[in-house]
Design a protein around this nucleic acid. Structure first.
Lengths: 168, 168
DNA sequence: TCAGAATCGTTGAATTTTTCGACGATATGA
DNA sequence: TCATATCGTCGAAAAATTCAACGATTCTGA
């Protein structure tokens, strides 16, 4: 079980400005998709939040806004399920965006319990800019991947994310 | 911008036991890797936590344990960087595992400020079982992917997660 | 038709995570 | 030696997550 290549921690003091964690990369952990996804996503959402900050958005509120702009007229319940969030969190998110007049709640004529979320013209305009910001963030986060690679990755992740046999 | 295929929300009341969020899948959001990764990881870690629960572990503590078993003798600082966690969180995690005598802190002879984390024999035994549990969770989470697909995915995620040009 | 069960959005509280600033002990560099 | 930086630790503030209730509405089956 011991690893003979383990060097004295002295090497941790090399001149590299960042990423001195190279030593641990030869570990079983890095073979686990779970771990890699977590780390990749951590970097990615940090970058996206950074880019969205100037628009006063985060990935969460951006996601809501995007769905509000989709023309699908989602209910809050649908947003919650789709984004894997608790309904109460949707309330807070929608509240924030509605106050800024980026979207609005409308009663669903077919079911007066639920409310349909749709973006205002102002919300749509902001979404266009936000979408570009996210795109820009991706260009940084995914710079190690070619266009073909990204397409590949999208496909693979999509299969996992929407696997009917893996709900809950 | 409107989507004419938007059906009345009535279809949300179909007999499916789970995943009634199909309507929103025809959205720009699902083309964003950021979003797909978040959703995939959400499902994945939920499943992993579920499998690890019987061993009284979570993905977090499991990761620490795995690195403690690596033979690399990581310091807490290294664990923090590698796992993208705040050093104070490592303290809590290590505390918990040390109390259960799964790992121990040893002073680093080369730098008495830092402490080297290594697993006890008991910790190693638990890790073997935990690793199997995670494997089992992956088999569920990734059931939509072939072995070749998984390898592909690992490679792609690894390139993102350890891209030197995308630190911070 | 009608009573009971279920669902929607909402609220508020409890819990967990995340983030940040400070501290003593130690190490480094001028 | 002295100033500065780093390591682990503590603690508190802020944010996110989870959960149980509630009124209003809809659905269900007798």
């Amino acid at each position: 079980m011991k690893d003979e290549t383990a060097r004295p921690t002295a090497s941790a003091h090399s001149g590299d400005p960042a990423a001195p964690d190279i030593r641990l990369r030869a570990t079983d952990l890095v073979n686990e998709i779970e771990f890699l996804a977590a780390r990749a996503r951590s970097l990615g959402s940090a970058r996206a939040n950074e880019m969205l900050a100037t628009l006063d958005l985060k990935v969460r509120s951006y996601s809501i806004l995007a769905l509000a702009c989709s023309g699908k007229g989602p209910s809050q319940r649908e947003l919650a399920e789709f984004l894997s969030l608790d309904p109460s969190q949707i309330v807070a998110l929608v509240d924030g965006l509605e106050t800024r007049r980026l979207l609005k709640r409308a009663p669903d004529p077919r079911d007066r319990r639920s409310k349909i979320i749709s973006a205002t013209p102002e919300g749509q305009r902001l979404y266009v800019r936000a979408s570009a910001a996210v795109q820009q963030a991706d260009d940084i986060s995914l710079r190690a991947l070619s266009a073909e690679d990204r397409k590949q990755l999208r496909t693979l992740l999509g299969r996992i994310a929407f696997d009917e046999d893996n709900e809950l």
